[in-house]
Amino acid sequence: MAPLPDGFSYAEWNATYNALSFGIAAMGSATIFFWLQLPNVTKSYRTALIITGIVTLIATYHYIRIFNSWVAAFEVSSKDGGDYAVQLTGAPFNDAYRYVDWLLTVPLLLIELILVMKLPQQETMGMCLKLGIASALMVALGYPGEIQEDLAVRWFWWKLSMVPFCYVVFSLMIGLSESTSKQPSPAAASLVSAARYLTVLSWLTYPFVYIIKNVGLAGPAACMYEQVGYSLADVMAKAVFGVLIWAIAAEKSAVEESGKLLAK
């Protein structure tokens, strides 16, 4: 964990402060919403919705820790009514919370999608295992480069982490396309497709944020762009994605309940 660079402007500090605060609010409110919706979906989809809430709950906890660490690392003050000055306190900013969060939540994100699709049991088990391991490996390979300043080392670990990343993206785009078309209604199939594409879109943000320091940006500006970029990507990949998981569960529950009523 490298020390924070000196020289933050108030705007750079405040942008990160607000992005982290937004992350807490989005993840926390999403958790409450998902778990309140449990009685409104059938038993088959409650596990997926519970996992969705667990993902955002874990993210809420880690965003609180990151936010508190960010605040503790700086002293922000204004003298004689002038502009706010931002100074380092010497306390470390622990950004490793992000990787701990991703290591726990990224496999769960893929598992909740597989579960809500309600594939055959053997296919469900196989996809959960393969995608869960690949996504955890992706996160584990990315961390050693994230904490390095040496560009060659950062590129090396970035390239390694992109191998399981590409496997997961390929599985989402190609491997699950046939299963998507077998959903019980056109609306459910459309929502599953949207969830797959949102996952890919939000995940594509992470490798580009990762290489911010590799392409010439440095100092406080690079740090700010990293924190804001990762925060926005997390909200899309967890809270917004979770809303789609709930919508899929709700739609498929309605279709199944309608089928039971017609059968009677």
Results as ranks from 00 to 15, higher is better:
Ala73Gly: 08
Lys79Ser: 15
Leu109Cys: 12
Leu57Arg: 04
Phe156Gly: 00
Phe8Ile: 08
Thr56Cys: 07
Pro184Met: 00
Lys79Arg: 15
Ile133Pro: 03
Gly23Val: 03
Gly126Tyr: 08
Gly81Lys: 11
Leu119Gln: 02
Asn94Thr: 11
Val100Ala: 12
Arg98His: 09
Ala73Phe: 02
Leu204Ala: 14
Phe8Pro: 02
Ser78Glu: 03
Lys79Trp: 03
Ala187Val: 09
Ser78Pro: 02
Ala239Met: 00
Ser135Thr: 01
Gln227Cys: 00
Gly142Ile: 00
Leu151His: 13
Tyr17Ala: 05
Leu119Glu: 06
Leu36Ala: 13
Pro92Gln: 03
Val71Lys: 01
Asn94Glu: 14
Ser253His: 06
Pro92Asp: 07
Pro92Glu: 13
Phe93Ser: 01
Val116Met: 09
Pro3Met: 04
Phe22Ile: 10
Lys79Val: 15
Ile212Ser: 04
Ile212Thr: 15
Gly53Trp: 10
Ile133Ala: 09
Ser21Ile: 05
Phe8Asn: 01
Asn40Ile: 00
Ala59Pro: 05
Trp157Cys: 01
Met1Asn: 14
Gln121Ile: 09
Val100Asp: 12
Pro107Gln: 09
Gly242Glu: 10
Ala96Glu: 13
Glu226Ile: 11
Leu129Pro: 02
Gly28Glu: 06
Lys118Arg: 15
Ala152Met: 10
Asn18Thr: 01
Gly90His: 06
Tyr97Asp: 11
Ser231Asp: 04
Tyr17Leu: 02
Leu201Arg: 04
Tyr63Arg: 02
Asp150Asn: 13
Ala263Gln: 06
Leu137Glu: 09
Glu256Ala: 15
Arg154Gln: 10
Gly142His: 03
Val215Asp: 07
